[in-house]
Design a protein around this nucleic acid. Structure first.
Length: 428
RNA sequence: GUGGGCGUAGCUCAGCGGUUAGAGCAUCGGACUGUGGCUCCGAGGGUCGGGGGUUCAAAUCCCCUCGUCCACCCCA
């Protein structure tokens, strides 16, 4: 048997209905905040990612699906969405026609990692990027958009963590301070932090090891060390979050792994996700557009981990009723009925009614069972009696009531029953 | 890349040296010949992950291997 590749998963019904539900809500909300969809390729030149994400990050060093195409060029399956969107933004000179561009995307990303709970080699993200706005109001407003999506999806137990990483000016100064502080403690740090000390000392701040937490407890604070400009920016972000009535947790030790983040960064964590508990994260990336060869345009964006979000939505038991939603089942008895039903089925379907049937001339009993299993709301029964009176029996599966309806009134009857049901559902 | 758990029917699992490998759920059919859910009856479905070894005898013990899950690293 040929099976799928490790970390590359199939998403089957009915779970696909949850995906569709989330995607629909995300699109609707993002559009109301002025974002438009952009679609970018899954594959880019390798250099785009190494330059933007950072040469020494884990993503670039060991997690990219990189290979040579037939022309000998090194190409890479996108490990994240921001870099390709920035590339497209620059390539099509979107800044030329409008100083502001607000874009969202959704689709698969690829990272060569060991799969675990909430982590896969092909995984899906929904992301949004706002270009051209320095003002911290966009940081707060974009966060509010994300939070309202999660509210619409009825998520519980989620926490918004925010921090400021400073900018290209003040962060290096803090890094020096931290290195000086940690220098003599290095031998006592855990193995990982000793390695971090060399690559990215800030990471030692959010180490999980007890001894490291103790050792770094007196470390100079990042938030106290950032420059005035960064401080003012961050204060305004917090102020506006409060104006939006958004609860947040200030986490001065939260460090993001991608090199391009500056100033505001955040992470939304959730209970029940396992060890990989961030369902969305992002931040400001002023300077990235310039680094990739565009003008010096600021940016703010985030990405949602789709599989993780699906886990949460499932956990809240809001399985979108997809499969049986508005479903009508056609039960036919005998060859004559099977033929006579064809024009009706064709009409109903072309008018947008979901209609399923059975094949192979099964017994009425068997057909009813199948209708029930599929969650059909209505069953249409066509047999000799109905044929004789040019009518159809319409049965409401919920109440069990049924009545004979003339052929030309069938659709009207179905619609009446379906809308009646929807009213009942929306009242709940 | 590192560490640990688990691989037996479609799914969840029992069996842990001894007839022909089981259960529940699911599937299909019947009881009910034109009416679903409940109940009862029956049927189909297995290279016991793969390979090698020990043994009169292996799903069961040993070795190797593959897969999967969880965790570390890192990240959404």
């Amino acid at each position: 048997m040929i099976n799928s590749i490790r970390g590359f998963n199939d998403i089957l019904p009915p779970e696909t209905y949850i995906w569709q539900h989330i995607e629909k809500e995300a699109r609707e909300i993002f559009e109301t905040y002025g974002f438009s969809e952009i679609r970018v390729p899954l594959v880019e030149r390798t250099g785009l990612f190494s330059r933007s994400i950072g040469e020494t990050t884990d993503i670039v060093e060991k997690e990219m699906y990189t290979f040579l195409d037939k022309g000998g060029e090194s190409i890479t399956l996108r490990p994240e969405g921001t870099a390709p969107v920035v590339r497209a933004y620059i390539e099509h000179k979107l800044y030329a026609s409008d100083p502001v561009a607000k874009l969202y995307y959704l689709g698969p990303m690829f990272r060569y990692e060991r799969p675990q709970k909430g982590r896969f080699r092909q995984f899906y993200q929904i992301g949004a990027e706002a270009f051209g706005i320095d003002d911290p109001m966009i940081d707060a407003e974009t966060l509010e958009m994300l939070v309202s999506l999660f509210q619409r999806l009825k998520l519980e137990g989620v926490t918004l963590n925010i921090n400021s990483l400073g900018c290209k000016e003040c962060r290096p100064l803090y890094k020096e301070k931290l290195i000086n502080f940690l220098k003599d403690k290095k031998p006592s740090l855990c193995q990982d932090c000793q390695r971090r000390f060399e690559i990215n000392p800030l990471r030692a701040l959010d180490c999980k090891s007890k001894t490291c937490i103790e050792l770094t407890s007196l470390a100079p604070s990042l938030l106290d060390s950032i420059c005035e400009g960064c401080k003012t920016h961050f204060e305004k972000v917090k102020e506006h979050l409060s104006l939006y009535k958004i609860d947040f947790h200030l986490n001065p030790r939260m460090v993001r792994g991608l090199d391009y983040y500056v100033r505001t960064t955040f992470e939304i964590t959730a209970e029940g996700l396992g060890s990989q508990n961030a369902v969305a994260a992002g931040g400001r990336y002023d300077g990235l557009v310039k680094d990739i060869g565009g003008p010096d345009v600021p940016g703010f964006g985030f990405a949602i981990g789709m599989e993780r979000l699906v886990m949460l939505v499932k956990g809240q038991r809001q399985e979108a009723e997809g499969m049986g939603q508005g479903l009508v089942f056609m039960a036919m008895l005998g060859e004559k009925a099977e033929k006579a039903a064809i024009p009706l089925m064709k009409t109903l379907r072309s008018n947008g009614i979901r209609l399923e049937r059975d094949y192979g001339s099964k017994s009425i009993r068997s057909q009813m069972r199948r209708a029930d299993k599929l969650g059909a709301k209505i069953v249409l029964i066509l047999g000799d009696d109905e044929l004789a009176s040019h009518s159809i029996t319409v049965k409401d599966m919920e109440s069990g009531e049924q009545e004979k309806v003339p052929f030309e009134k069938v659709e009207e009857k179905i619609r009446a029953l379906l809308t009646e049901r929807q009213k009942v559902m929306s009242k709940q």
